[in-house]
Amino acid sequence: MEYPNKQRIPYWNWVPAAFALSGVILFIFATYGPPASSSGFVSLLKGFFEWAAPDYVAAKAHYQSIPGPGSWVFAFVLGMAIGGFIAGRTSRDIPVRDMPPIWVKRFGAGRAKRYAATFFGGLLILFGSRLAGGCTLGLFISGSTQLAISGIYFGVVIFAVAMLTARLIFGKVSEKEDIQ
């Protein structure tokens, strides 16, 4: 085994976890179609704007291409939140924290800075996802599973850029100290 001391690693082993995830992915392909999560954001917004500004939604191609919240795509992301909640409540060992320790080491414990950064980062990941037509799940995982060049291309670039970005931001602190 790779981790002799089980107590220190609260996470599942990656091999059975990959089997479990692909089981879920195949269930989705069989019962619905290609899984996607960034569409859920658009779906929620569509529901909001249909109530607040129906003419705006009717005139916008992007909202016309995605169903409103009474759909699989929104039910899926809502389910993800419920799944995260259940998983969080049933695990005593996996730490739930608002501030990643590596962030605190790099930028301090100020919450405003972290929340502003995740808001901005969230904006970037969804803007990028909607431009490409999908995200880590909807384009990389589900696209590559369908052998799509778009999924493989997107996956290679997001990993390369994220690894470079993380290195530029956290590279120094991760070398200096033991961040566990």
Binding site: S38, T118, G128, S129, A132, F154, A162
Partner: peptide
């Protein structure tokens, strides 16, 4: 697709979240 992946990668590297994991 390439440009979107670059924008996405910056956000992912900065926050550690992707669209699905935020939920």
């Amino acid at each position: 697709t390439g440009l979107a992946a670059v924008i996405f990668g910056i956000g992912w590297g900065l926050t550690g979240y992707c669209p699905g994991t935020t939920w």
